[in-house]
């Protein structure tokens, strides 16, 4: 149901984004999707990877401070109004969407979005009645997300 998102802090300076990506690359870890939240001074690079524990360990060993958050990966029907249906269910349950971003690849002709809710568990419950698929173990590259 829920998946783990790995975040690192990067200063808003040339080259800073490269360092965590390179660290993961050297360890052979593929970034399935990512999003960068930024302020003028720094950014938070959030990533979905096949094995979050391994990624956390590799990044920490390289000196990064790592945050792990529970997010939901939701398959959204790729037609007009698809996303609106999801958001309606969430809004009706009074759950706040902290942020969201899309998977870079399409899956089964559906769009896949990563949602960070105030409470992942509450969101899972709110979405239970909707005909939506919460992805927990299939990735576009056929790798397991843990």
């Amino acid at each position: 149901m829920k998946i783990h998102q790995v975040s690192v802090f990067v200063e808003n300076k040339p080259g800073r984004l490269l360092a965590p990506c390179e660290t993961l690359a050297k360890a052979g870890i593929n970034i399935i999707t990512l999003s960068l939240a930024d302020t003028h001074q720094y950014g938070i690079l959030r990533m979905i990877v096949p094995d979050w524990q391994q990624a956390k360990e590799v990044l920490e060993r390289a000196g990064f401070v790592v945050n792990v958050a529970e997010v939901l990966a939701i398959e959204v029907p790729d037609h007009p109004g698809g996303l609106a249906d999801v958001l309606r269910a969430i809004e009706q349950a009074g759950i706040n969407v902290e942020y969201m971003y899309a998977f870079s690849e399409r899956l089964n002709d559906k769009a896949m979005l990563v949602f960070r809710f105030e409470s992942a568990d509450a969101a899972v419950a709110a979405l239970a009645g909707c005909n939506l698929k919460l992805v927990s173990n299939i990735t576009p590259a056929g790798k397991k997300i843990t």
Binding site: S7, A37, T39, I44, V65, N67, E98
Partner: peptide, 15 residues
Amino acid sequence: EVNAQILSDRIGAME
């Protein structure tokens, strides 16, 4: 310096 207690995935929490 950002440490594990300070880091959040949410910009709002950091600010």
